[in-house]
Design a protein around this nucleic acid. Sequence first.
DNA 1: GTAACTGCAAAATATTTGCATCCTT
DNA 2: AAGGATGCAAATATTTTGCAGTTAC
Lengths: 139, 139
Amino acid sequence: MQTEFLSILKKNNLSVTESRMKILELFAQANGALAHNDIEKKSKLQFDRVTIYRTLQTFVEKGIIHTIPTADNSVLYALCKDECTQGHHNDNHVHFICDSCNVTYCLEHSNSPSVILPKGFKQNRVDVVVSGICLKCNA
Amino acid sequence: MQTEFLSILKKNNLSVTESRMKILELFAQANGALAHNDIEKKSKLQFDRVTIYRTLQTFVEKGIIHTIPTADNSVLYALCKDECTQGHHNDNHVHFICDSCNVTYCLEHSNSPSVILPKGFKQNRVDVVVSGICLKCNA
DNA sequence: GTAACTGCAAAATATTTGCATCCTT
DNA sequence: AAGGATGCAAATATTTTGCAGTTAC
């Protein structure tokens, strides 16, 4: 696991620091999306609030994490899959936000359906965000 | 037009005030989505920043406007269609954000495709946001 | 007249920037 | 040693809240 984080940073020409390793770890543990605030809480006192902002920003730029649009417009981030590289995100999967427990899932196996656009519109990126009740809360 | 705004407010038991009428007018003119900031600029000095926050909040609650999730997590609002009522939004259409001119379109005729969720997940709301180049910028 | 709405001030929250210091390579 | 990363302080920006005054009904 540690090794994996290490190679992610190396691959992107980022120096290996404690905060970056820790934040990657949090994403891996979360197995889904995290808000800036989640990270702040879970890393209490370990590093500065500003460092979190800067780390998230760097990770987005490098294609290590991506943002997830949400209907309530909170800012969420999740780990990208391998196909993502700097400047080109390819997150062709559906995000699911549970209205009950508020956890965000990346549904890897639900590919975004293609959308038919009116003539003259060129598609670049598609985000599909479903909200509802998740498996755990539905039980 | 004025009449229409009036009936929207009346229908929702909201008193008819200058700011509410003006904000409805701005949405109608925009023919798409507006951010809080857009409204503030376009209504320069006419009313308080706080009034805009409160008006938008009220409109969302009543089902007059809805929020649009965006990849960069800015907060966008657009007029709801008739099917929306208080507590139940029904915005089953695709939103398109132009990467070039930054205008947001509600594509009424592109219905959100249905998404197949894993077992145990219950769907409530689906948001589809496409970004790319719009008709005007493509010309 | 009463309840709802607005403006202003201020609090609370969130984000960005500059710079000195420390750490990674 | 050099460049990049972090922490701290402070500037900005955003959103919320309280309350007094005003307006709609």
